[in-house]
Design a protein around this nucleic acid. Structure first.
Length: 461
RNA sequence: GCCCCGUUCGUCUAGCGGCCUAGGACGCUGGCUUCUCAUGCCAGUAGCACGGGUUCAAAUCCCGUACGGGGUGCCA
């Protein structure tokens, strides 16, 4: 085992969404690639918005994607240590108490003529505020100098310390905030590589400063991943975009397909094979190969991946996975015989995609649209084809092979194409399964009746 | 406003100074698989944001511009 230690640290304030899943995945890939340790750290310091239910949901989505973790922590279990760290900063004079309200700060900002929303102005730095209601602890950021790091993905990133405001490290309710918990835990847990979304770059100098104050000046390796964006090129948001991993699961995406698709967002395998086994990806994965521009989450391409994975499944596995999704009127043995045809046509593991493929086999054929009907049945000679097929069907041997020979035989005799009119008559559709196998599953009388009904409709037109 | 980041086909990517008349994938279009659809195969479509440098040589390095995004919470 190598000494690489990485972590995925979601805040359980929502379901795991595709952006978080991709971060988790890249951390996991790197850990597995290096033989290191993958840690799941639940950052639930915002107790008001975190919930056990959401933590469970995150576990669930991670397991579904096959992302297993080696160690697990919850930051609320470590709050005492975070607080002790914050208090030490207070003792050392690296932090101070502040009782400014947002309103008071805004008033000062307005009085100075600064832009609304400007950062904290260090008002309480030397006021020696005592503990009490509405009092927070702020970190004293340096007034000069530069805080920066060499990002594996972005290169050198630097911030002027002067633009860093004295940020809050302990809330007025006494709980430590994200930065302290994050900085402390990364150092304490010996995290060697921090792989996370680009939306966190701005917090990095704060964490770095905190580490220095803690006596851990040597930073981990940072890799800030490009964001996953929607069609408006904006960061995927839980509110406006439908992006929870669980939703994709519910929509019938295979975890392997989802995981494989996510891998291609911001990274490409060196061998160019974008659909491959997870082992191939683990083998090739390097942080330095991750690109730095945002990636659009393209459901069309995801669908393609999903369809590929569905088709690649062993038939028995596919059948077992989908058999309970068949229309309830379809007997299990019939479904098993039709499963190969279903597998070839499915984009999602979804009952609603399966139903239209086979409902005509167990109930009346659907009414085709006028447009489709005319396109197929409006051709010259269709009536004679249907008439002859209907007659032959009453006596032909009832097997797929014999049915095919019969229907095509009529075509040769009449010098016409027969498959489409017969299909339309029997299935009510121009598209679908190969005709003769399922047709042989129906009763002879039913099929003959459907062909005769179609014939009557053609003649009436 | 301030800070940070980004820009190769519509989309995801390859490309790390000559192999690039820019490759692959999705999508779309067309064709072929002795008569559906799907699959498979073949073909086509379309791109280095712009302007300056550096260099014998730039998609690749530097600077600027434009555009886009992220952050700017007692969220993470």
């Amino acid at each position: 085992m190598s000494d690489v230690r990485v972590r995925f640290s979601p805040a359980p304030t929502g379901y795991l969404h595709v952006g978080g899943a991709r971060s988790a995945l890249f951390n996991w890939l790197y850990a597995r690639h290096t033989g290191g340790t993958f840690i799941l750290r639940i950052e639930d310091t915002d107790t008001d918005r975190s919930s056990d239910h959401l933590i469970e949901a995150i576990y669930d989505s991670m397991r579904w994607l096959g992302l297993d973790w080696d160690e697990e922590y919850r930051q609320t279990d470590r709050a005492d240590q975070h607080l002790a760290f914050a208090n030490q900063l207070l003792v050392d004079g690296k932090a101070y108490r502040c009782d400014c309200t947002r309103d008071a700060l805004d008033a000062r900002i307005a009085a100075r003529g600064d832009a609304a929303g400007s950062g904290y102005d260090s008002f309480c730095r030397d006021r020696d505020v005592q503990p009490g209601d509405g009092v927070v602890v702020r970190f004293r950021t340096p007034d000069e100098g530069i805080t920066g790091w060499d990002d594996v993905i972005r290169g050198r990133v630097e911030f002027e310390n002067s633009v860093l405001e004295d940020f809050i490290i302990v809330r007025s309710n006494g709980t430590p905030m994200f930065h302290v918990a994050n900085a402390f835990d990364d150092a304490d847990m010996g995290i060697t590589h921090v792989v996370r979304g680009e939306d966190l770059v701005n917090t990095t100098p704060r964490v770095l400063l905190l580490r220095q104050a803690m006596g851990h000046p040597e930073p981990p390796v940072y890799a800030h991943l490009p964001l996953i964006v929607n069609e408006q090129r904006k960061k995927l948001s839980k509110r406006r975009d439908d992006v929870a991993v669980g939703d994709y699961r519910a929509k019938g995406y295979l975890p392997e397909a989802m995981r494989n698709y996510l891998i291609t967002l911001g990274w490409g395998p060196r061998d160019g094979e974008e659909i491959a086994s997870i082992d191939r990806f683990i083998e090739q994965f390097e942080l330095s190969d991750i690109n730095n521009s945002p990636a659009f989450f393209d459901v069309k391409k995801l669908d393609h991946f999903n369809a590929e994975y569905i088709r690649a499944m062993p038939l028995e596995e596919f059948t077992a996975l989908t058999i309970d999704l068949r229309p309830e009127t379809v007997p299990a043995d019939l479904y098993e015989r039709m499963a190969p045809f279903v597998q070839q046509r499915l984009k999602h593991i979804d009952a609603e995609e399966i139903a239209p493929l086979m409902e005509w086999m167990v109930g009346p054929a659907p009414e085709p649209s006028d447009k489709d009907w005319k396109k197929v049945m409006g051709k010259d000679g269709v009536a004679s084809v249907l008439a002859l097929v209907a007659d032959r069907l009453t006596v032909v041997e009832w097997s797929p092979e014999a049915l095919e020979a019969c229907v095509f035989g009529v075509g040769e005799e009449l010098n016409a194409k027969t498959q489409l009119p017969v299909r339309m008559a029997v299935t009510g559709s121009r598209t679908g399964f190969p005709l003769f196998e399922p047709m042989a599953e129906l009763d002879r009388d039913e099929v003959v009746a459907r062909v005769r009904a179609a014939l009557a409709k053609v003649e009436a037109a």
